[in-house]
Simulated assay, not measured.
Amino acid sequence: MPPTAHHFTPAYPLHEPQHSFRSKQYAPPRKRKRLTDPDDESDDSDTHLDPLEPSVQSHDINDPYRVAGWPENFPLPGSSFPHAPAVKPKTRQPSSNNLQKELAALKPPLYVPPPGEQDTTSSLRRHHLSVLTTVLHTSLLKHDFVRAGRAWGMILRTDILGRPLDVRTHGRWGIGAEILMRKFSCGKTHQDQPRNASTISDEGFEAAKDYYERLILQFPYQKTNPHAISSLTFYPAMFGLCIYEIQQRCKSAIGCVQNTPSDVDNSDSDLALSSDPDEEISAIKHSELESAASLAARMDELMLSPPFDTIPSLLQLRASVALWLVDLYTTTAKTDDDDDDDENKERVSAERARAKKCLDRMKAAGVTAPAMIVDVLD
C-alpha cells in the first residue's frame, strides 16, 4: 500500500507557524498575557491568540529563583541575580614590590635575592653551582687556596637563567679577597724567615687591595638602592687591610732585628739603617708612622664628602687610626730633637681632636662608640 499524506504529517504541533517576512510585518500585534484575576469577570478570550500555545503555566520552569536554586524567603545576593551570577569578593593579592618593602622594613631586615639567585627550579647549572661551592669551602678548610681560587673563578663565570652571579651575594666578595691574600703566602719572607698561618705576603696584600679597588669602581654607592652592598662596604674593608699590612710589615722587621745576631751584616734589609738595633727599631717606627699618616690622609680626603662622612664603620676606623698615630708620635718623639718634639705634640693634639670629632659624629648618628676608644680619649 503506498504511503498517503497522513504518514508525513508530524505527530507534534508546531509551536510557531511558518510565515513570510511580509506577512509578519502586516500581522496584527499580539497582546501580552495578563495574569488572571478570579474577581475579574472580563472576557479573556484574547489572552491566547495562538491556539497551539499551552494554556497551563509551569511555575517550576518559568520561576527563575527555583531554577537558580535560590529560595524566595532569602534576600537576593545582588549583582542582578538570578539573571547574572553572584559576584564573589576578590581577595587582593600583595604585589611583589610591597612584599619586598615590608621584608626590608623588618629588624633585622630581610632582602629577597634577585631572580638569578632564587632556588625556584632545579637544573643542571644549579647542581653544578652547588658542587663548585662545596669544592670551594672544602679547599678553604684544607688551606688549599690555589684550588679554592680556581673554584671561585668558575663560580663567577657560571650563569643561572641567563644572568651572571653577583659577586656581592652570599659573602663571595669577602671570600675572594681572602683567597687572593692567602694563595701567595706559600714560601718565605724576604728575610728568609718561615711564615706562620697569620703571615701574608706583599703580593697577597697588593692583589687584595687591587681587588677592592676594582669592586669600589664597579659597585659605587647609589641613592636609589642605599641598602645594597657598595663602596660603603668595600672602603672599610680595604682600609682595615692596609692597617693590617702596615702593622705586619713593621712587626716582621722588628722581629728580624731582634732575632739577628749583632755580628751579622744587615745592609740588605729594607728598613735597616745601621748595625745598632735601637736605631734600626727607631727607623722602623718612623716608617710605620709615615705609612699610617699617609693612610689617615687618604681617609680624610675620602670622608670630606657625603655619604662617607657619616658612615659609622669609617668613623670608628678613623678614630682608631687617630689614636694609633698618637701612640706613634709619642714613641718617635723620644728620639727626636726639640723642634721635632714640639711638632709631634701639635700633631698629637690634632689627632686627638680628630678622634673626638669622629666620636661626636657617631653619637649624632645614634651609634655607640667602643668603650676602649672612649676611655682613651677621656
Rank of each mutant, 00 (worst) to 15 (best):
Y212C: 04
K33T: 10
H170M: 11
V131S: 12
P307L: 04
L273P: 01
E16T: 08
L124E: 15
H227I: 01
P226I: 00
E53N: 09
L302Q: 07
H143I: 01
N266T: 07
E178H: 01
D309Y: 05
I311P: 04
V135F: 01
I246W: 02
D270W: 05
S139T: 02
E53G: 05
T121Q: 15
D300H: 13
C250M: 06
D276R: 11
D265G: 04
S282W: 10
A293Y: 10
P82H: 06
A292Y: 13
C242H: 14
T189I: 03
N225H: 14
P13N: 10
H286G: 14
I179Y: 01
S230Q: 02
Q191V: 00
A371L: 12
H286M: 12
P115Y: 04
Y26Q: 15
L99C: 07
C256G: 06
I216Q: 06
G240D: 11
G116R: 10
P236Q: 05
R34W: 06
K345Q: 15
L241C: 02
L99W: 06
T133K: 09
D263T: 09
V321E: 08
K90E: 15
P194L: 09
S294I: 02
P38Q: 04
D341Y: 14
A11R: 14
A228C: 06
V264T: 09
I175E: 11
Q57R: 15
T134G: 09
A86Q: 08
M362W: 00
Y221N: 02
H227W: 05
M372N: 13
A11I: 04
E72C: 03
D144E: 02
F234A: 00
D309G: 04
M362T: 00
E178F: 02
M238K: 10
D63P: 01
P10W: 06
D40A: 05
N344Q: 07
F205P: 00
R298Y: 10
Q218A: 13
D144I: 00
R157V: 00
F184T: 08
